[in-house]
Nucleic acid binder design. Structure first.
Lengths: 130, 130
DNA sequence: ACATAGTACCTTGCACTACAAGGTACTATG
DNA sequence: CATAGTACCTTGTAGTGCAAGGTACTATGT
């Protein structure tokens, strides 16, 4: 029924002429894709040995993941508040004392769970790619 | 300098006693990890053949990715506004007409870029896992 | 003819995230 | 003692997924 179809399309709220197109630049996409994965990555790096903020940023950079301070600090606070991380102050030879983070027991468990989530996600993408 | 270290710690704004811990339940983590990847998955599914909303949800479900309508529709609108998708109305034998989506040229290019982003991300995680 | 169920589309408001920008406190160096 | 460097943190903004709710059409039973 061409007629009813036409009616339907005309009567339905239409999002065609919404606000101007938003950013879907590849700059943005990369950043969007990292969302929620950063937490995983940070737990991963800390799991090897206790680290402080600059250590973490450095290590992530070697893996081609750019993270800035303003992102990292709130994230570390979140993880500590959720009892996934604990910190200890340690003096430095050159500069202010550093806050070294390490995984709590809960943190290790969570990391394990996140690893599974990740591999499940990777499997899904694989599945869709065929 | 135990003394100066102490000062530093005391004087710095401290986030230790912030608001109560937020959700870092594994429910939430899984959902957070999917963020920004959904867009990629949806382009992937549409790349094979044109699909409408329910098709997409069904296909994602077979890959163990749960998506709901309220998530999908705004996302499709975004992609269309960014000229990655185009849609055509088609009648249905049973029910209202359907909006079939397919990739534009720009959409295909973007999908290609996203594939690279994904594999680079996977490589990073791999790198960190050792 | 009319109500009910089913399908398909869409919006609003919320919680969460990453980031840019800016600020404080300490150390080391010229 | 000023300047640069390191390390920590906060505030405000834009983007995202989701729950909840709403509109429009078709098919079916009574």
């Amino acid at each position: 029924m061409k007629e009813s179809e036409k009616e339907y399309k005309e009567n339905m709220k239409d999002s065609s002429k919404d606000s101007p197109a938003k950013d879907t630049t590849s700059e943005n996409q990369k950043s969007q894709m990292r969302k929620g994965i950063l937490e995983f990555c940070i737990l991963l790096t800390i799991s090897k040995e206790k680290k402080y903020a600059s250590d973490i940023i450095k290590e992530l950079k070697t893996a081609d993941l750019i993270v800035v301070e303003g992102t990292l600090y709130p994230l570390l606070s979140r993880l500590r508040q959720s009892d996934l991380l604990a910190h200890t102050w340690e003096e430095s030879q050159s500069g202010p004392p550093r806050k070294y983070y390490e995984l709590t027991k809960k943190g290790k468990e969570t990391l394990h769970a996140l690893k599974e989530t990740w591999s499940s996600l990777a499997k899904s993408i694989n599945h869709l790619s065929n």
